[in-house]
């Protein structure tokens, strides 16, 4: 329930940012929504889910107990956000390259589906890991 609440808040904040961008810049409303939600979808979400595969736990920023928690493969929230971006820009070209190599063309639909694929596969791995460990 808490997770759902957080997701709704995040989406609402992003919508406000997109709205603000659309109103206060030369971008159209459609463009600003595409940029804001597109950024999250392409540059953040894939890495965010993958980061949970590598580091299942999130600890508090600069927690005194961090050293101990670190051994349990936890990272703080800033680290997770940064890793989400870094891993996204690392995984995306890698996957697109291999898909292109086996003959899948790069176009807008395939790009969308590729990321969706990454998200679903990572989600399944995450679910499987949480269930088994």
């Amino acid at each position: 329930m808490n997770n759902l609440k957080a997701i709704i808040i995040v989406i609402a904040v992003l919508a406000v940012i997109a709205l603000g961008t659309g109103i206060f810049t030369s971008l159209s409303l459609f463009e600003s929504f595409r940029i804001v939600f597109g950024s999250v979808y392409v540059l953040f979400l894939p890495g965010f889910i993958i980061s949970y595969i590598f580091f299942p736990k999130t600890c508090e920023f600069e927690n005194k107990e961090k050293q101990k928690e670190k051994e349990k493969r936890s990272i703080d929230w800033i680290e997770r956000i940064a890793l989400s971006f870094a891993l996204s820009i690392a995984i995306v070209p890698l996957v697109v390259f291999y898909l292109n190599l086996i003959g899948i063309k790069i176009n807008i639909i395939n790009s969308f589906l590729t990321i969706l694929g990454i998200l679903i596969i990572s989600g399944i791995i995450l679910y499987w890991r949480r269930k088994n460990f």
Binding site: Y41, V42, P93, S111
Partner: peptide, 10 residues
């Protein structure tokens, strides 16, 4: 590959 892909969004 990265930049072409991003160009579909931005």
């Amino acid at each position: 590959y990265l930049i072409t892909f991003l160009n579909y969004i931005f």
